[in-house]
Amino acid sequence: MVKCSFCSNDAILFQSYSQKFFCGKHLSDLTEKRVGSNMRKHGMIRNRSRIGVAISGGKDSLAMLYIMHALLKKDRSRKLIAITIDEGIRGYRDAGIKCAKAFCKTLGIEHHVYSFKDFAVPMDTIMKKKHGDPCSYCGVFRRWILNKASRKLKLDALAIGHNLDDVAQTFQMNIMRNEPLRIARFTPNGGLVDCDDFVPRIRPLFSVPEREIVAYALHNKIEFHNAECPYAHMALRNPIRDFINSMEEKYPGTKFRMLNTYLSLLEKLPHQEGLEISECEECGEPSSVKTCKRCEMLAKLKRDTRGVGPRKLK
């Protein structure tokens, strides 16, 4: 067995970008240090006491919850509250929710589940009618519900499990779509708009490579749900992910260089000036246009399917 570069233990991971081998303990130390440093450096929990953690039951979100719980458990001024969204994908999300529930129970963390069927339309219903790109619907509905739930739970911030790979992919996709505002919005702490009705999103894992999170979760015996979303094969993200991974393999450090470019660009991109936030005419949620994207999509689905809709409109 290959040995760790820092001790005599067997290595579980080779970091090609640093040319170092890591045993489970040293990989765990590094990952936890990175997350703690991200949270401190970007002021993710500064002056915030109720911190939400969005968990799907997958490796990223459960590892994030595990690390945040370890970092904050002695801090009595802060409370972690987990939120899971049930998108209504039979045979996929059920297993994730089961893992999320069990994990929160083990850590003693309050956990809430919100469903598409109550606030939007279940993904299985949408896809029965083949309504184009499923990830667009899923992303818009999920973000809308997460924000509404975060306000209801009086959260000061909501942690999202986006890792280094997600950041690199999102950055690349937004360049290809010519979406500078979306790049500006995808920040480690908060977003483009400073509005009381938007609960700020924080991304404590934004500099942790996806592969290292899986190794971390396996080493720390975190029981996560590892299956492919049945609709994920239709996403633009897949070829982008393959491209970036092939670049990383040929030119180690590519993902970190993309992250550094993105962080440098963030400072230069247009900020919130000129972007007015009011209430969506349909649902009353914050929106920069008359009708928010969620309500626009719901109206389209209702037209196309003759009446499908959420149980709770507001």
């Binding site: 996929y92 899986v214 492919e228 994920a232």
Partner: peptide, 8 residues
């Protein structure tokens, strides 16, 4: 072999 990224 455990796939790191399952998508979704």
């Amino acid at each position: 072999i455990i796939r790191v990224s399952t998508g979704g």
